[in-house]
Design a protein around this nucleic acid. Structure first.
Lengths: 124, 124
DNA sequence: GTTTTGTTATAGTATATATAGAACAAAAAG
DNA sequence: CTTTTTGTTCTATATATACTATAACAAAAC
């Protein structure tokens, strides 16, 4: 079930994008599955249609879903990460890892943290 | 040397914050060292004083520097990460790790990526 | 005593986030 | 075939964020 926190400082369209990604990571959604229509999901969540639409297009730009006109938003996760995609991901990881280094975290400590978070994602 | 990219989509105050954190991670700046005054750095970079000020306060909120009135911005990195700080970091890592999982990255693959990025930070 | 410091205040512009409502063409559903 | 649903596009509004500009202040540094 997708939910949002209106009080969060994280924009709604990013909250939604993140939740959908986690649902896929968990296996609750798989390649071929479709997301609800923008109007239906917006109605459920009590937010504007355009906000949901923006979430979906976030996922389109990440090549995680494909919006097939008049059919729906279909999940299209193909395994494997291109070098271009890896560069984008690295740019996002970089400031977080810099902070970890500043705080004196050792690589083992960080690897454990990563493992813990990944397990949390899978278990929620 | 601190620089900014005016074309970047990353806000200037975050670019600066990130660069300063990387300088500390690299060892170019250490506990006790002081950053230039907000006016001096703003002049060097060709940006507004308030933008640099915002960067510094980003680091204050992360407890990485301390602004001693009329003395300067002093680096105060004490090793060790509180549980509260760990929770904040986890919240930032989480969506990135979800995306990695969606793309089918295995934990080994991710650990290698993390190591690579950390080495890049240290070597720049 | 002059300069430099971080801070605070006001003001303006530009962009980002979110909402609202309307209209469109085409596919799906009845 | 007709109705409904679909994503898309457009206009409009409100609020928040990012950045700049300028001014003023009190206190430490010189």
């Amino acid at each position: 079930m997708l939910t949002i926190d209106p009080e969060s400082t994280v924009p709604i369209y990013l909250q939604l994008r993140n939740e959908i990604m986690e649902a896929i990571a968990r296996g609750d959604l798989s390649t071929g599955d479709t997301l609800p229509s923008v109007r239906a999901l917006a109605g459920d969540l009590g937010v504007n249609m355009h906000t949901v639409n923006k979430s979906y297009h976030e996922l389109v730009s990440k090549e995680i879903i494909e919006i097939v006109p008049k059919k729906g938003a279909v999940i299209i996760v193909d395994e494997g990460v291109s070098n271009q995609r890896l560069a984008l991901m690295s740019a996002e990881f970089r400031p977080l890892l810099a902070e970890a280094l500043v705080r004196g975290m050792k690589e083992e400590e960080l690897q454990r943290l990563i493992t813990t978070i990944m397990n949390n994602i899978k278990e929620d």
